[in-house]
Protein backbone atom coordinates (compact mmCIF):
# COMPACT_ATOMS: atom_id res chain seq x y z
CA UNK A 1 0.00 0.00 0.00
CA UNK A 2 2.85 2.34 0.83
CA UNK A 3 6.46 2.11 -0.25
CA UNK A 4 9.00 4.69 0.80
CA UNK A 5 12.41 4.45 -0.79
CA UNK A 6 15.59 6.44 -0.18
CA UNK A 7 13.55 9.25 1.27
CA UNK A 8 15.21 12.37 2.65
CA UNK A 9 13.06 14.96 4.32
CA UNK A 10 13.76 18.31 5.89
CA UNK A 11 12.38 21.58 7.13
CA UNK A 12 13.28 24.46 4.87
CA UNK A 13 16.65 23.47 3.44
CA UNK A 14 17.92 21.68 6.54
CA UNK A 15 17.68 17.95 6.06
CA UNK A 16 16.39 16.00 9.06
CA UNK A 17 16.18 12.35 7.99
CA UNK A 18 18.19 10.68 5.25
CA UNK A 19 17.70 7.45 3.30
CA UNK A 20 14.55 6.26 4.99
CA UNK A 21 13.15 3.03 3.55
CA UNK A 22 10.07 1.18 4.62
CA UNK A 23 7.07 -0.66 3.25
CA UNK A 24 3.55 -0.98 4.52
CA UNK A 25 1.09 -3.61 3.28
CA UNK A 26 -2.62 -3.81 3.86
CA UNK A 27 -3.29 -5.03 7.39
CA UNK A 28 -0.02 -3.64 8.71
CA UNK A 29 0.82 -0.78 10.99
CA UNK A 30 4.12 0.97 11.44
CA UNK A 31 5.09 3.11 14.41
CA UNK A 32 7.73 5.76 13.79
CA UNK A 33 9.61 6.40 16.99
CA UNK A 34 12.09 9.05 17.86
CA UNK A 35 12.84 11.90 20.22
CA UNK A 36 11.29 15.36 19.85
CA UNK A 37 12.44 17.22 16.77
CA UNK A 38 13.87 14.20 14.97
CA UNK A 39 11.50 14.67 12.01
CA UNK A 40 8.52 12.43 12.72
CA UNK A 41 5.94 15.06 11.77
CA UNK A 42 7.96 16.13 8.72
CA UNK A 43 8.11 12.55 7.47
CA UNK A 44 4.37 12.07 7.99
CA UNK A 45 3.60 15.36 6.22
CA UNK A 46 5.66 14.20 3.24
CA UNK A 47 3.80 10.90 3.04
CA UNK A 48 0.48 12.74 3.38
CA UNK A 49 1.48 14.92 0.44
CA UNK A 50 1.58 18.24 2.28
CA UNK A 51 5.27 18.67 1.80
CA UNK A 52 7.74 17.75 -0.91
CA UNK A 53 10.57 15.43 0.08
CA UNK A 54 14.14 16.58 -0.54
CA UNK A 55 14.99 13.27 -2.24
CA UNK A 56 13.50 9.86 -2.78
CA UNK A 57 10.17 8.35 -3.73
CA UNK A 58 6.86 7.75 -2.02
CA UNK A 59 4.59 5.24 -3.75
CA UNK A 60 1.11 5.23 -2.41
CA UNK A 61 -1.93 3.20 -3.38
CA UNK A 62 -5.36 3.77 -1.93
CA UNK A 63 -6.89 6.64 -0.07
CA UNK A 64 -5.18 8.46 2.76
CA UNK A 65 -6.53 10.23 5.81
CA UNK A 66 -4.17 12.39 7.82
CA UNK A 67 -4.53 13.45 11.44
CA UNK A 68 -2.15 16.19 12.49
CA UNK A 69 -1.32 17.63 15.89
CA UNK A 70 -3.72 20.47 15.26
CA UNK A 71 -7.09 18.80 15.17
CA UNK A 72 -9.06 21.20 12.99
CA UNK A 73 -12.10 21.14 15.24
CA UNK A 74 -14.62 23.96 14.91
CA UNK A 75 -15.68 25.09 18.36
CA UNK A 76 -19.03 26.56 17.34
CA UNK A 77 -20.17 23.32 15.73
CA UNK A 78 -21.28 20.28 17.70
CA UNK A 79 -19.30 17.04 17.86
CA UNK A 80 -21.78 15.44 15.46
CA UNK A 81 -21.62 18.35 12.99
CA UNK A 82 -17.81 18.29 13.00
CA UNK A 83 -17.80 14.60 12.13
CA UNK A 84 -20.60 14.95 9.59
CA UNK A 85 -18.60 17.62 7.76
CA UNK A 86 -15.55 15.37 7.40
CA UNK A 87 -17.70 12.40 6.41
CA UNK A 88 -19.19 14.54 3.62
CA UNK A 89 -15.78 15.84 2.47
CA UNK A 90 -14.38 12.30 2.22
CA UNK A 91 -17.60 10.91 0.79
CA UNK A 92 -17.83 8.59 3.78
CA UNK A 93 -20.85 7.86 5.89
CA UNK A 94 -21.71 9.33 9.27
CA UNK A 95 -23.64 6.98 11.53
CA UNK A 96 -24.52 7.03 15.19
CA UNK A 97 -22.46 3.83 15.68
CA UNK A 98 -19.25 5.62 14.76
CA UNK A 99 -19.67 7.74 17.89
CA UNK A 100 -19.49 4.59 20.02
CA UNK A 101 -15.89 3.82 19.01
CA UNK A 102 -14.55 6.45 21.41
CA UNK A 103 -17.72 6.77 23.49
CA UNK A 104 -18.63 10.18 22.14
CA UNK A 105 -22.33 9.32 21.93
CA UNK A 106 -23.20 11.32 25.07
CA UNK A 107 -21.23 14.31 23.79
CA UNK A 108 -22.66 14.28 20.25
CA UNK A 109 -24.70 17.46 20.57
CA UNK A 110 -22.19 19.39 22.66
CA UNK A 111 -20.41 22.34 21.04
CA UNK A 112 -16.85 21.22 20.36
CA UNK A 113 -15.51 24.35 22.08
CA UNK A 114 -16.64 22.88 25.42
CA UNK A 115 -14.65 19.66 25.04
CA UNK A 116 -11.56 18.87 27.10
CA UNK A 117 -8.23 18.19 25.39
CA UNK A 118 -8.75 14.44 25.69
CA UNK A 119 -12.29 14.64 24.33
CA UNK A 120 -11.07 16.72 21.39
CA UNK A 121 -8.47 14.08 20.66
CA UNK A 122 -11.17 11.40 20.74
CA UNK A 123 -13.18 13.47 18.25
CA UNK A 124 -10.12 13.72 16.04
CA UNK A 125 -9.59 9.92 16.24
CA UNK A 126 -13.26 9.29 15.40
CA UNK A 127 -12.76 11.50 12.35
CA UNK A 128 -10.44 8.85 10.89
CA UNK A 129 -13.28 6.32 11.06
CA UNK A 130 -15.76 8.46 9.12
CA UNK A 131 -13.27 9.12 6.29
CA UNK A 132 -13.42 5.49 5.20
CA UNK A 133 -9.81 5.74 3.96
CA UNK A 134 -7.39 2.80 3.68
CA UNK A 135 -4.24 4.35 5.08
CA UNK A 136 -4.36 6.32 8.31
CA UNK A 137 -1.46 8.66 8.94
CA UNK A 138 -1.60 9.80 12.53
CA UNK A 139 0.77 12.13 14.32
CA UNK A 140 1.11 11.16 17.98
CA UNK A 141 -2.45 9.85 18.18
CA UNK A 142 -2.33 8.97 21.87
CA UNK A 143 -1.38 12.45 23.08
CA UNK A 144 -3.67 13.64 25.90
CA UNK A 145 -5.59 10.32 26.06
CA UNK A 146 -6.12 8.45 29.32
CA UNK A 147 -5.42 4.72 29.74
CA UNK A 148 -9.00 3.69 29.00
CA UNK A 149 -9.11 5.61 25.72
CA UNK A 150 -5.66 4.43 24.70
CA UNK A 151 -7.09 0.91 24.99
CA UNK A 152 -10.00 1.96 22.76
CA UNK A 153 -7.48 3.39 20.30
CA UNK A 154 -5.62 0.06 20.15
CA UNK A 155 -8.91 -1.74 19.52
CA UNK A 156 -9.87 0.67 16.72
CA UNK A 157 -6.48 0.32 15.04
CA UNK A 158 -6.75 -3.48 15.30
CA UNK A 159 -10.15 -3.60 13.65
CA UNK A 160 -8.99 -1.14 10.95
CA UNK A 161 -6.04 -3.43 10.16
CA UNK A 162 -8.24 -6.49 10.15
CA UNK A 163 -10.54 -4.78 7.66
CA UNK A 164 -7.57 -4.48 5.30
CA UNK A 165 -6.47 -0.99 6.23
CA UNK A 166 -3.04 0.23 7.18
CA UNK A 167 -1.72 2.78 9.64
CA UNK A 168 1.39 4.90 9.90
CA UNK A 169 1.75 6.33 13.39
CA UNK A 170 4.28 8.41 15.21
CA UNK A 171 5.02 8.21 18.91
CA UNK A 172 7.74 9.14 21.32
CA UNK A 173 6.92 6.35 23.76
CA UNK A 174 5.95 2.74 23.30
CA UNK A 175 2.62 1.92 21.73
CA UNK A 176 1.26 -1.42 22.82
CA UNK A 177 -0.07 -2.51 19.43
CA UNK A 178 0.74 -5.27 17.04
CA UNK A 179 2.97 -3.21 14.79
CA UNK A 180 6.52 -2.85 13.60
CA UNK A 181 8.48 -0.04 15.12
CA UNK A 182 10.95 2.02 13.14
CA UNK A 183 13.41 4.02 15.19
CA UNK A 184 14.03 7.24 13.27
CA UNK A 185 17.12 8.20 15.25
CA UNK A 186 19.22 5.93 13.01
CA UNK A 187 18.36 8.00 9.93
CA UNK A 188 19.32 11.22 11.60
CA UNK A 189 22.89 11.81 10.53
CA UNK A 190 24.80 15.03 10.85
CA UNK A 191 22.39 17.70 9.71
CA UNK A 192 23.39 19.33 6.50
CA UNK A 193 22.16 22.36 4.67
CA UNK A 194 21.06 21.55 1.16
CA UNK A 195 22.61 24.00 -1.24
CA UNK A 196 20.73 25.36 -4.18
CA UNK A 197 21.63 27.33 -7.26
CA UNK A 198 20.75 30.57 -5.54
CA UNK A 199 23.39 30.19 -2.83
CA UNK A 200 26.45 32.36 -2.97
CA UNK A 201 29.72 30.44 -2.69
CA UNK A 202 31.19 30.51 0.81
CA UNK A 203 34.53 32.24 1.13
Amino acid sequence: MLKVSNLSVGRGRISLLNDVNFMLKAGQALVLRGPNGVGKTTLLRCVAGLQDPLLGDINLEGSVAYAAHAEGIKGSMSVFENLKFWADVYGGSMTEEVLLAYKLNDLAQRPAANLSAGQKRRLSLTRMLVTGCDLWIMDEPTASLDAENIALFYMTIDSHLQAGGAALLSAHNDLNINAETLDLAQFCKARSIVTSNFDEPLE
Binding site: L50, V64, A70, K74
Partner: peptide
Protein backbone atom coordinates in the same frame (compact mmCIF):
# COMPACT_ATOMS: atom_id res chain seq x y z
CA UNK B 1 -9.19 30.67 11.01
CA UNK B 2 -8.86 27.36 9.17
CA UNK B 3 -5.11 27.79 8.92
CA UNK B 4 -4.68 28.42 12.63
CA UNK B 5 -6.72 25.48 13.89
CA UNK B 6 -5.25 23.00 11.39
CA UNK B 7 -8.40 22.50 9.32
CA UNK B 8 -6.66 23.69 6.16
CA UNK B 9 -3.96 20.99 6.41
CA UNK B 10 -6.65 18.36 6.83
CA UNK B 11 -8.60 19.77 3.87
CA UNK B 12 -5.44 19.79 1.76
CA UNK B 13 -4.97 16.05 2.40
CA UNK B 14 -8.64 15.29 1.71
CA UNK B 15 -9.99 14.30 -1.72
CA UNK B 16 -11.25 17.87 -2.22
Amino acid sequence: MDYEDGTLELLATSPL
